[in-house]
Nucleic acid binder design. Sequence first.
DNA 1: TGCCCTTTTGACCAAATGGCAAAATTAACA
DNA 2: TGTTAATTTTGCCATTTGGTCAAAAGGGCA
Lengths: 104, 104
Amino acid sequence: MTQEEQRKFNVMSKIVKAMSHPTRLFIVDKLKERKHCVCELTDMIDSDISTVSRHLSVLKNAGILMDEKVKNNVYYSLRCPCVTDFFSCVINIIRTQHEDVEGL
Amino acid sequence: MTQEEQRKFNVMSKIVKAMSHPTRLFIVDKLKERKHCVCELTDMIDSDISTVSRHLSVLKNAGILMDEKVKNNVYYSLRCPCVTDFFSCVINIIRTQHEDVEGL
DNA sequence: TGCCCTTTTGACCAAATGGCAAAATTAACA
DNA sequence: TGTTAATTTTGCCATTTGGTCAAAAGGGCA
């Protein structure tokens, strides 16, 4: 593995790691429609607000989300809509696995 | 989050989590060309063979790889070639981020 | 200024993860 | 059968992660 490859895969894994949690996948999925503030997301997810806030900062640090303050609320949104492709891609992998199993 | 959503995102995160490590991304990338045995991969990755073996079993448990024993060697290969899309997808996200930064 | 609301942060614990080393497994072959 | 080579499993350690509580921070607004 060359140094350049190493750098490349480190950068990639940062993105992937940020998405590797059910709650964070849910958040990204929700933000595909429109921006949401922390308390809206907390209502949807059955979890502590501090936990949700932490998940959001993980996604923000990975460069997947951006935030914007409106009055008392912080609204999070997707920084690039192309994360949508990510989802269909993972779902495609899962679908192929199922076909494999059914094909036995 | 409904129970069904919860199940869905749990399944998805299992796949994503398995890919969320630089070494494992490298392995999947290498296996896109052709199957490789553990020692071949260990030669490419500067790491202990037991560590590489563990990474491989993580990917296998997530259903991303399959293995096949030939003589003394265990050859690993991709269970579905569509993981390739996964890569271009993540790279696309990274590219968009860079454009964002340069666009400031 | 002082109060309220939303969000973030720090401290802490439990669980999961990554890595190494040594032992166990498996197969080939003399 | 015994030896050797390749791989996997296991035990152990340090580090990271996810979660909760409580406290702090940051903005509105009276």
